[in-house]
Simulated assay, not measured.
Amino acid sequence: MTDIMLKDADPVLVDRIKRVADARGWPLPRALLYLLEQGLHVYEGDGSVRFDTKEADVLAAAIAALEGVPDDEGFALIGRAPPPGAD
């Protein structure tokens, strides 16, 4: 495998890469390789974000839970637009 070296990298960028590595428990080279691969996929693709199966399932469960909030005069109306002509 080719060695990857960052020269004159912005310290903020290096810190962000280190935080990803620490959060995932990866050595820094593995984190850098993963981030480069994922960045290339996004750049070469259509730019849309895709969730893996676990993330999609969690998001679907969260949406289902929000849809299950009872329709009342208070909490359930937060963020909802009034029906047309309700003015």
Results as ranks from 00 to 15, higher is better:
E37K: 06
F51N: 11
E37W: 06
V49F: 14
L33K: 03
K7T: 13
G45Q: 06
W26H: 03
L36D: 05
A62H: 09
D10H: 10
D15A: 15
D52M: 08
A9Q: 11
V49E: 11
E55H: 06
L32P: 03
Y43T: 05
M1S: 13
A23S: 15
D71F: 01
I17L: 11
I17V: 15
A56D: 15
V20L: 11
V14Y: 02
D87K: 13
D46C: 06
L40D: 10
R80E: 07
A60L: 13
I17K: 01
D22V: 06
Y34I: 02
Q38A: 13
E73R: 10
E67V: 06
A60Y: 08
M1N: 08
D52F: 09
P29C: 07
R16F: 05
L77F: 00
L35D: 03
D3C: 01
V69H: 00
I63R: 09
M1P: 05
Q38W: 04
L36H: 08
L28K: 07
L28A: 00
L35N: 03
I63H: 04
L32K: 00
A9P: 00
R19M: 11
V58F: 09
G79P: 05
G85R: 04
G47L: 08
D46T: 08
L40W: 12
D71R: 10
G74N: 11
P70G: 06
A65T: 15
A31Y: 01
A31E: 00
K18W: 09
L40H: 11
E55W: 04
G39H: 02
D46S: 13
A9E: 09
P82V: 11
H41A: 13
A64S: 12
P82I: 02
M5W: 05
P84E: 10
D8S: 14
L77E: 15
G85Y: 00
A61M: 04
I17N: 03
R30P: 02
A23D: 13
A76C: 07
K54F: 09
V12R: 14
L59G: 02
F51L: 14
A61Q: 15
G39K: 04
A81E: 11
L32Q: 00
M1R: 09
A65N: 10
G45T: 05
A9T: 07
K54W: 08
H41I: 12
E37G: 08
V14S: 04
R80T: 12
T53P: 02
G68K: 13
D52S: 14
L36A: 12
D57C: 06
